[in-house]
Amino acid sequence: MSLNSLWEYANPKKFIQTTDRVLPWVAWSAALTLLVGLVWGFFFTPDDYRQGSTVKIIYLHVPAALMAINAWLMMLVTSLVWIVRRHHVSALAARAAAPVGMIMTVIALLTGAIWGQPMWGTWWAWDPRLTSFLILFLFYLGYIALWEAIENDDTAADLTSILCLVGSVFALLSRYAVNFWNQGLHQGASLSLDKEENVADVFWYPLLVAMAGFVLLFIALVLMRTRTEIRARRMRALLARERMGA
């Protein structure tokens, strides 16, 4: 698909038409992939020889963490598109993605805590990765709160996209700061979180399917929520015009 044709979907009406056509397919394939991945992971994978059955949490934890970060990246890109080209759909897509990304962050944090309890003997450790996710969660909170607080749509879109840009820089800074900080506290990491390393094929394939499921689910949710936001925006515009005319 060339870039030119991609901009056509920036037209709200066109976006809604396309979404109406595409969404059922995406949604059902998301449900199917998620089902296959999670059922495969839960029922048909062996236990890890060290971690026992807790390794099954990986099929939720890693995809959720992946989407938590990707959702923010998507918001960053759509915010940039809004600032540069001022397509309303783009700003609204960022707004639609934020709560989904926040839920993914929460899932990653909670499953991580539940996993950490039997493995490390603690629900929470101020490990760099855990801490960065907590900070990411705070950024999501602030971003969503700012959208909710501002009444004018265009002002809200402008302010939140600048916040998203600045926030991205600071989130990245925090990531490195946190790395540095924990190193400074405990000389050397006591917990290794590198689950991705040396994951055997038996765990890897269902994990891939689960990740694909989470990606599809995210796309489906964002399409649906963006469509909702477009309609809500049109509704506010119509109401405003009504009030002016009356």
């Binding site: 900070i135 705070l138 950024f139 909170l141 602030g142 709160a145 700012l146 607080a149 501002i150 002002t155 302010l159 600048i162 916040l163 600045v166 926030g167 600071f170 989130a171 800074l173 925090s174 490195y176 700061a177 946190v178 540095f180 900080w181 400074g184």
Partner: peptide, 30 residues
């Protein structure tokens, strides 16, 4: 500047600014 036009912007201001303070706090306190 983000919250200047908002009524009751104070609480939102803290929510927005505190995560941005994280790197400064970490390096300063360290």
């Amino acid at each position: 500047a983000l919250t200047v036009g908002l009524k009751r912007g104070g609480l939102l201001l803290s929510l927005l600014v505190l995560p941005l303070y994280v790197p400064t706090l970490i390096f300063g306190a360290e």
